[in-house]
Write a protein that binds this DNA or RNA. Structure first.
Lengths: 225, 225
DNA sequence: CCTACTTTGTGCATCGGTTCACAAAGGGAT
DNA sequence: ATCCCTTTGTGAACCGATGCACAAAGTAGG
């Protein structure tokens, strides 16, 4: 028995946080289809998880369901959004407008969730000045000034591996504490800074591992030394 | 198909599998710099993990280190590559050549790890026939035929959300059992099929959650109720 | 050989997360 | 109000992953 009045529990498990966006996406879909309430079972199926897990996850935010009925979709959307901090507007900067940076700048999924791409940077004079997704690409020299001026709080690194650490150091120096890193390097940051990394080739390698097992099966057991 | 008890004896923990590509990347960097042997401590630092964890991970593959010395870089690269199935060549198809698909097709990280982009598909007649990253974009109607003909075993989905499940069903029907999904939907597949998903906006939402906590702290407790 | 030193590989305690299973809580009908 | 049905919220068992700490195994030098 906890007291929800005394603010929320400061310790939401990391695994739960990682699933909240999933629930949110499923709930948005339901809201659009006019669903008013949903049971943990149905929501769990829509989000691709187990219903007990979903209930435990939601219980960390508070007691927002009604026993015998389920959860009110709109209300739950609001609660999860608030918990994730999506009720406020986040200014995001993307550094590096190569293929990936360009794709990210145009990615609709950001805008629809309270994220606003506020700046694009590149070191290549060739692309500086271009307009991508309605935004002017600025020179990397302007990094600090623009980040400060536009209140950027989250930076996406889509630079070549060699440049990532330097850019990282610079944005950390201006006070950015949240970084999404697409460059295939391990970034060194003060532990006040959060770094999440996405490495596309790692995902493929994990798939290859399992694929190999499936294909090889018992046959593969004869390893070639 | 496969008995769970049987595949378990040779089973490498999932968490370990997810880190092997990380070690591999660090080792490649060292090999390039001419490092011949490396201690678990140094490799752990380069990969951004704890050294005990690294040793335990490697111990799942076998006993490839020398006590008092460390690991031979080249040899370890080979062993990890073999375990991950990277000593063979994987034909990958990318479905959907919007911004993201294009970026993926051009992504160097794939090629450098035994992955070969063997086909690109799209439904839009406007882009079918274009050449991207040296490859002809084929019409989605050719999906089954081309996958069979070129021996594609891994499919990357970069389609709009609405199209993902249908494409997924079709590639599964042709026998593909490994899918990397970028579309923001939960795919339904037979459990013989592996799906890994990457949702860029989910990563940002997780960052926003932590950022909010940092920024708000006690102040944020005054919420609208 | 023996001694000193380094680093691996692993047993074990621990921790966080998942799942089960059920009491508690609500709605609706009579 | 009372009974029945549904679904939440959670205690507790379970399971896998982490990290400590050290014995085992190797090198180097006398």
């Amino acid at each position: 028995m906890k007291s929800p009045s005394q603010s929320r529990d400061r310790g939401i498990p990391e695994a739960t946080v990682a699933r909240l966006p999933l629930y949110l996406r499923a709930l948005h879909g339901m809201a659009e289809r006019g669903v008013a309430t949903v049971s943990s079972e149905d929501l769990a199926v829509a989000a691709g998880v187990n219903s007990a897990k979903l209930r435990k996850d939601l219980s960390h935010l508070g007691s927002y369901g009604t026993r015998g009925v389920g959860y009110e979709v709109e209300y739950l959307v609001y609660q999860i959004s608030r918990e994730l901090g999506l009720t406020q507007d986040w200014a995001v900067a993307i550094v590096g407008v190569g293929n990936l940076g360009r794709a990210l700048a145009n990615y609709g999924g950001f805008v629809s969730r309270g994220f606003r791409v506020a700046a694009l940077f590149d070191a290549d004079p060739e692309v500086v000045g271009d307009t991508i997704a309605g935004l002017n690409v600025e020179h990397i020299d302007e990094l600090e000034a623009v980040i400060r001026r536009r209140g950027v709080s989250i930076v996406v690194l889509a630079t070549p591996a060699a440049a990532a650490q330097e850019v990282c150091d610079r944005v950390v120096a201006v006070g950015v504490t949240s970084i999404l890193n697409f460059a295939p390097v391990v970034l060194t940051v003060p532990d006040t800074v959060d770094v999440r990394k996405v490495d596309l080739s790692i995902e493929l390698q994990i798939l290859a591992f399992h694929e190999q097992r499936k294909a090889g099966g018992p046959l593969m057991a004869v390893d070639g030394q």
